[in-house]
Design a protein around this nucleic acid. Structure first.
Lengths: 224, 224
DNA sequence: ATGTGTGAAGTGCTTCACAGCG
DNA sequence: CGCTGTGAAGCACTTCACACAT
């Protein structure tokens, strides 16, 4: 990749077209680089990374080259340097505040799940509309607040991310409430097809679909 | 993200080359058809389905046509008929037994999550290697068994699916144990790159990657 | 008239293969 | 030499557009 900004042909306004799949792999790379750094490894080649991650090395080089030439030919990539660059590119340098909507089994488990709080995410509140649940406390000590407080709390805490763990029939309604509360990124666990306006990011994790997919493959194998 | 489905040179009498993405959409269709059936709708067009699911109608027709002509030109698809055919194609006509490996926060939550037990999946056991946890019972009443019992219990119960909810560093080791216990389908929640031998299906759900992906998009929006 | 089924075109992601640099 | 960065090829998924069935 050319170094001088002047000599580059017109085209890429500096943040061009990173696909979702690439972005997900960046997370994987970052995690691996963390491991390597902790292990005291100084440099790593795309081959070595590919081996660890069960990926194609060209894929890795292409992904990384999208952000400029991070590597040294004949040597590889500096682990520490690449780690820091990726963290900055992905916006993982500051902490992000997260609210959880829905205090059922899944919402509670997410609230108590330590993995988030340790690494760049803080759970700041947990909401539900069931009066039976409001006021109770999760095993990990997170209190359940009334959903009516969501807009106020979200703004006060400057929450940027919501985890939506509510039943499918009310998911769209609560998603809309979340977005109206100023939150622009939502991770949805409800098995429902949802929509958001442009400018808001929505990702969904649907465990039942994954399970059924396993069954599909099992069935296929049985019949073969 | 599930890599590892090498294209198999299977014949094509009836079931050739269904991609993973297609298979996942079949779950979505099935769920929607269930709703429609419950609502008393008798027939539905690909257009109508597409509208509900925010998909392209040609996509739906193409997916369905892979299994034969289910539709009636000029009319659409019979809701009940299509529902039953899809359920059969996906192997969702009988119940599947599921074991959970790892009784941490996530494993416990999965064990108590009613959604599975209601719809074609039964949690038959929950395992951990921590002596502190073995013998305890989840809120929903599932007892934690010693991991050493996994092979025996899996075979006795004829478990077909495992949910792997253990820390990353031990994930591959436990995955191998699961596979050696005769289980051929695994849904992994550990943030680790895992491998299985051909013939075993592995899908992974990585919440941290999803969260970081949201941050990436947020950051991108901020910088734009 | 209406809506399926499908070849063909379009789009995007992955892998190959090699020039070029250290 | 070894390894990156990258055009080009390969492959996969999606969408278009229309013949055809009812």
């Amino acid at each position: 990749m050319t170094r001088g900004t002047k000599s580059r042909p017109v085209g890429k306004p500096r943040g061009a077209a990173i696909s979702d799949l690439t972005a997900q792999r960046l997370s994987v790379y970052l995690r691996c680089l963390d491991d390597l750094q902790r292990a005291g490894v100084a440099t790593v080649s795309s081959q070595a990374l590919a081996g660890r991650l069960h990926l194609n090395s060209a894929q890795i080089r292409k992904d990384l080259s999208l952000f400029g030439g991070f590597g040294v030919r004949g040597v590889g990539y500096s682990v520490g340097d690449l780690r820091d660059r990726l963290a900055r590119i992905m916006g993982l340098t500051r902490n992000r505040k997260v609210v959880i909507v829905g205090a059922g089994n899944l919402g509670m488990a997410l609230a108590d799940y330590g993995g988030f709080n340790r690494e760049g995410f803080s759970i700041v509140a947990l909401f539900d509309n069931d009066p039976q649940k409001v006021g109770t406390v999760s095993r990990g000590g997170v209190r359940v607040l009334d959903i009516a407080l969501l807009p106020e709390v979200a703004r006060r805490e400057k929450a940027q991310i919501a985890l939506l763990a509510v039943p499918a029939p009310v998911a769209q309604r609560l998603l809309d409430l979340v977005v109206r509360s100023g939150i622009k990124a939502v991770l949805n666990f409800a098995p429902a097809p949802l929509r958001v306006r442009p400018g808001v990011v929505l990702k969904s994790v649907d465990l039942k679909i994954q399970l059924e997919n396993l069954v599909f493959h099992l069935t296929r194998a049985e019949r073969a």
